[in-house]
Amino acid sequence: MSGRHPVRAGLIGLGMMGRHHARVLRAVDGVELVGVADPCGDPHGVAGGLPLVDDVDGLLRLGVDAVVVAVPTAYHEAVGLRLAEAGVHALVEKPVAHDGAAGCRLVEAFESRGLVGAVGHIERYNPALQSLRARLEAGDVGEVHQIATRRQGPFPARIADVGVVKDLATHDIDLTAWLVQSGFRSVFGQVAHKSGRPHEDLVAFSGRLEDGTVTSHLVNWLSPFKERLTVVTGSRGTFVADTLTADLTFYENGTVDTSWDAVAAFRGVSEGSMVRYALDKREPLLVEHEAFRDAVRGDGPSRVVTLREGLSPLRVAEAAIESATTGRPVDLSRDPAPASVVPA
Rank of each mutant, 00 (worst) to 15 (best):
D172T: 06
F225W: 12
L115M: 01
F239T: 01
A86G: 13
D161A: 10
G300D: 09
L332N: 08
E271C: 01
E309W: 07
G35R: 02
V342D: 11
Y125G: 03
M274W: 13
V56K: 10
A74H: 09
G254P: 01
A22D: 04
V46N: 06
F292L: 00
P51R: 04
A344C: 08
D140W: 02
V164K: 07
D247S: 09
A246S: 15
V165I: 12
F225G: 03
G196C: 07
P72F: 15
A148T: 08
L279F: 04
V119C: 15
A264H: 13
A47H: 03
L248S: 00
R150I: 08
H217P: 01
V64G: 05
E85P: 02
T215F: 09
D201C: 02
D211S: 01
R282Q: 15
A339G: 12
R82M: 11
V96A: 00
F266H: 10
V28T: 09
P6G: 04
A118P: 14
V330M: 06
A160N: 13
L311V: 14
E322F: 02
L11E: 12
A291N: 05
V231C: 06
D99S: 12
E111C: 06
E143P: 00
V219T: 04
S216I: 10
A319P: 02
R267Q: 10
G87W: 12
F250V: 00
L115W: 03
R315W: 11
A138I: 04
D211M: 01
R276L: 10
A128W: 12
I173L: 15
V144W: 03
E227V: 10
A134Y: 04
R267F: 03
G117W: 00
L314C: 14
H217L: 05
F225N: 07
T149P: 11
P127S: 15
Q146V: 09
S333C: 14
F266T: 08
R19L: 05
T176P: 03
G310C: 02
D42S: 05
P127H: 12
F155C: 07
S131F: 07
L244D: 07
A192T: 13
G10F: 04
G212M: 07
T213Q: 12
G120T: 00
H76Y: 12
E108F: 15
R228D: 10
H89T: 07
S273F: 00
V69K: 15
S323A: 14
T326Y: 13
S112Y: 06
S270N: 07
A66C: 13
G41D: 13
G120H: 02
F239P: 01
F184G: 00
Q190L: 13
V116P: 04
H44W: 09
A278T: 09
S312A: 14
G268E: 08
V256I: 14
V330N: 04
S323I: 06
R19P: 02
L311H: 14
G268T: 06
A204K: 12
G80Y: 12
A317R: 03
R82A: 15
M17P: 03
L136Y: 03
Q190M: 14
T245K: 11
A118Q: 06
A109V: 08
T176G: 01
E227Y: 10
G272E: 05
D54W: 08
G272P: 01
